[in-house]
Simulated assay, not measured.
Amino acid sequence: MTFNPLEHEGIPLDKQLRNWRELDVAPVDPDDSDPYTRCRIIALNGIEIESIMFSHHFARVCPDMDVKRKLAEVRYIEAQQQKVVNWLLPGAASPLETTIAYEQVAVDLTAWVARMEPDPQLKQAYEFGVLEDFDHLYRYANLYEMIQHRKAEKIVDGLTEVIPGRPTRFHHRHPADNVREPYDKTEADPLSKLHALTIMAAEQQTMNFYMNVGPQYMEPIARQLYQEIGLIEEEHVTHYESLVDPGETWWERLVNHEYNECYLYYSFMQTESDPRVKVIWELHLNMELAHLQAACDLMRVNDGREPEEVVAPELPVPVTFEPNKQYLRELLDTQIDLTTLGAGYVRDAHERFERMQETVMGGEQPPSDAVIDMHTEKFGTDYRHELERS
């Protein structure tokens, strides 16, 4: 069954405000809930944050007071949505447990997007990045067992493997080599635009989370590992945001953001296993439909264009969290030794990469290697959770 969000008005904007009781949602159970429910929560939180920050940036360059007021009205509702979504996460979970869930999101969401991406250049960008998030999951899992004495498979529940990816030490590249060529807005498949927005938002959320959580740890190795991987997440945001055509107007971007929110809430409604959470996804979808209508009206008035010129007439195949073990193993077999040069990818280290490595490492072992050595010294081996291929 197809679904065209442009044909639905949703809940009127002036009926969307919620009071404190309605915003005070009960969190999911950290021990009994579906790990992919937690992944959906984290992914949608990133989408809401991106929508809010985009609206703020738009407002800062917009001289039209009426437009600024409409953006503010929608943005406040988005902020309420973000609080509800993010507050579904259990307070009983430690920041490190949430971190492992963030990396599970990064691995399985990016892998799914890569599998579905129709543009070979964009597909390669996602395949390149996912092998790095895969390794981050492995490094944090070793830290988790060392300082909290628990195993990461309790969190990922056998859905995602915990094994080495492209070694984190090799993720430190010259900033110029993290900038990719963008898609062409006039030729790109509408699905490609949604993919780029989704992964950019997810990585941006992860970058922000690590830069704030990292210094709250007392253990030196934890502080160091968050600092190292936090810097790599900045690289990833640069990598993914550069995929978006900078020639898109603010109005096009606004419509794309709202359409993408409709897409993801609709997608996650299809597979959500927690009935209480599914009701929230359905409610937010009906709110987002009205936000999309408001964005389309603004584009018609200010850009003189119809939304059908920018977005697809119906939602694509729903985004799905599912195991990607075999796909990731194939990428490990074929792409683990890639690095970047300019906007492209190469297998051999080059002078700019080696100079960056030398400067960042400073002749010392990076935290991402140290955490494995410390775990091995303490337990006799590193921590990994390898599954049967499927």
Rank of each mutant, 00 (worst) to 15 (best):
E234M: 12
P118D: 15
E358M: 06
E117R: 07
V28L: 10
R166D: 03
L143D: 08
H239C: 06
P118M: 12
E314R: 09
I49R: 07
V113G: 03
A92Q: 15
Q82H: 11
A72V: 10
A152G: 08
Y266A: 13
V360K: 03
V113C: 06
I77A: 04
V74M: 03
S55L: 05
R300E: 07
G158K: 09
P167M: 07
E314Y: 09
Y259P: 02
F54H: 10
P35Y: 13
N86T: 15
L292K: 07
P366W: 13
E248Q: 11
R253C: 07
V244Y: 07
G342D: 05
Q224Y: 03
R329G: 04
H195F: 08
D64T: 15
Q82F: 09
Q293D: 11
G380W: 10
R38L: 12
V255S: 05
E181Q: 14
G304Q: 06
D189V: 12
E132I: 14
S242W: 05
Q82P: 00
V105P: 00
F209V: 13
E132M: 09
E48Y: 08
S33C: 11
E103W: 04
A72G: 11
Q205K: 14
H8R: 14
Y183M: 14
N324I: 11
L289D: 04
I52H: 02
L341K: 13
K123N: 13
P307W: 05
T381W: 00
Y183E: 11
K185R: 15
N178P: 01
L331D: 02
P246F: 12
G342H: 06
Q205S: 12
L131A: 09
Q224D: 12
R300N: 06
G129R: 04
Y259G: 09
H195G: 10
Y266C: 08
L298E: 07
D31I: 14
Q81H: 15
E354M: 09
Y210N: 11
I52R: 02
L137M: 07
I229Y: 00
V61P: 00
Y266K: 13
T339L: 01
I232P: 00
